[in-house]
Deep mutational scan, measured.
Amino acid sequence: MIVFVRFNSSHGFPVEVDSDTSIFQLKEVVAKRQGVPADQLRVIFAGKELRNDWTVQNCDLDQQSIVHIVQRPWRKGQEMNATGGDDPRNAAGGCEREPQSLTRVDLSSSVLPGDSVGLAVILHTDSRKDSPPAGSPAGRSIYNSFYVYCKGPCQRVQPGKLRVQCSTCRQATLTLTQGPSCWDDVLIPNRMSGECQSPHCPGTSAEFFFKCGAHPTSDKETSVALHLIATNSRNITCITCTDVRSPVLVFQCNSRHVICLDCFHLYCVTRLNDRQFVHDPQLGYSLPCVAGCPNSLIKELHHFRILGEEQYNRYQQYGAEECVLQMGGVLCPRPGCGAGLLPEPDQRKVTCEGGNGLGCGFAFCRECKEAYHEGECSAVFEASGTTTQAYRVDERAAEQARWEAASKETIKKTTKPCPRCHVPVEKNGGCMHMKCPQPQCRLEWCWNCGCEWNRVCMGDHWFDV
Rank of each mutant, 00 (worst) to 15 (best):
W54L: 11
S109A: 09
Q317H: 10
I239Q: 02
R256S: 07
V186L: 07
Y285R: 02
L342T: 09
V290K: 04
L102G: 11
C352E: 02
P180A: 03
S9M: 04
C293V: 00
A383R: 13
T103D: 14
A405F: 11
C260K: 00
R170S: 10
G47F: 03
N190K: 10
K299T: 11
V17R: 00
P132A: 12
V5N: 03
D62E: 15
G203T: 02
G459S: 15
A320H: 11
C263Y: 00
T125P: 14
T175R: 13
K369T: 05
V111N: 14
V269L: 04
Q252L: 05
L162N: 01
V43A: 12
R314C: 02
T351L: 08
C323G: 12
V15G: 00
I2V: 14
T386N: 13
V56Q: 01
P216K: 08
K27Q: 00
S101K: 09
T222Y: 09
P99Y: 09
R6Q: 05
C368E: 03
I306F: 04
G114F: 08
C150T: 00
K32D: 07
Q71Y: 05
G385Q: 08
L41N: 01
I142P: 12
T410V: 10
S19P: 12
G308W: 03
G84T: 12
C352M: 02
M458E: 15
R396V: 09
T351C: 11
E49L: 03
L226G: 01
D62L: 08
W453Y: 00
I306S: 05
L443W: 05
T270H: 04
V244D: 03
W462C: 15
C368W: 02
V43K: 00
E221D: 11
C337A: 03
D20R: 07
A405N: 14
C263S: 00
G114I: 08
R314P: 00
P281D: 12
E322S: 05
R140E: 12
F264I: 01
L283P: 02
K220V: 12
E207H: 06
C182N: 12
E321H: 06
A398C: 11
S145R: 07
K220L: 11
P199V: 06
I188K: 11
N273D: 04
A406M: 14
R234Q: 10
N454M: 03
D62G: 12
L307E: 00
E426N: 11
N190V: 04
K413I: 14
P247R: 05
F362P: 03
N295R: 07
A31E: 05
V456I: 15
L123P: 15
A134V: 11
P73M: 06
H302A: 14
S108D: 14
R234E: 06
D460P: 02
R97N: 12
D53I: 02
G338L: 05
L331A: 04
G328E: 05
S131N: 12
R51H: 14
L162Y: 00
C201P: 02
Y391Q: 06
K48V: 04
C260V: 01
F146G: 02
G135D: 13
I122D: 15
P159S: 06
C154Q: 01
V269G: 03
E404G: 08
S233I: 09
S205Y: 10
A138I: 12
